[in-house]
Design a protein around this nucleic acid. Structure first.
Lengths: 124, 124
DNA sequence: CAGGATCCTTATAGATACTG
DNA sequence: CAGTATCTATAAGGATCCTG
């Protein structure tokens, strides 16, 4: 995405054109359910759309679809389509996706601990 | 937010009341510049507001202010105010914040490599 | 210096309906 | 099954002005 077209200025706010895309991968990860999704997919060899939905029931179909799209575009997830009947599509992490997930897991794990285990002794 | 309502049901989509806050920390981290901010603050013992702004020049004052607020609320950052003239306020990571940063750094590092986009990371 | 309040713009998620 | 297209509601970021 960042080709050598001479203006690699990361400060997109110099003009009002864009809303500051920041770093690609981080931006992608900052979207809703993105991190969880990577984690879920990586926890399996491959998953079908409906299975992903089942794992992330709180997310809407279109949201999951969008995330998946973004992941594909970012090279984090691969999509394999089997033209059968009924249709079958499998999603899996790419190598990059796995590398990401490795770095993501400690964060998510810690986050879930922190979130439901308040460390402050004074509360409640 | 610090409501001790005994039922920590994270599935906010059972009712249409809220926009699904997800897991606290992850949501906080998903906001713009949030991860970078944690990284920046953690790279120093403490930082003043203006210094943070300088490190994250692309972010607006109000955005930084909001992040800082959220971090404080999440117990990730401490704010120390010195009633001098001129006013002096120092921000630093709490223990929790440091734990977070430890898990965040590999991700950010990998992300910047992957993205190949030089960010406004002034110091190491 | 440090930031809050306000207003505005844009981005993003969800619902719904429809298709290959 | 596996989505896409469209629309709407809302949230989130930025600019600006203003204060302690």
């Amino acid at each position: 995405m960042a080709d050598a077209t001479s203006s690699p200025a990361p400060t997109c706010d110099v003009d009002g054109t864009c809303y500051c895309p920041l770093t690609g991968v981080i931006t992608t990860l900052s979207r809703k359910y993105a991190m969880q999704l990577v984690s879920i997919i990586g926890a399996h060899d491959s998953l079908r759309f409906a299975e992903i939905e089942a794992h992330l029931a709180s997310a809407s179909t279109s949201t999951i679809s969008k995330r998946l799209d973004e992941f594909e575009a970012a090279g984090l997830v691969s999509r394999t389509q089997y033209n059968e009947m009924p249709p079958r599509v499998e999603y899996a992490l790419t190598e990059d996706g796995h590398e990401l997930r490795e770095r993501l897991e400690p964060l998510l794990e810690w986050a879930s601990e922190t979130d439901d285990a308040p460390k402050d002794d004074s509360d409640t």
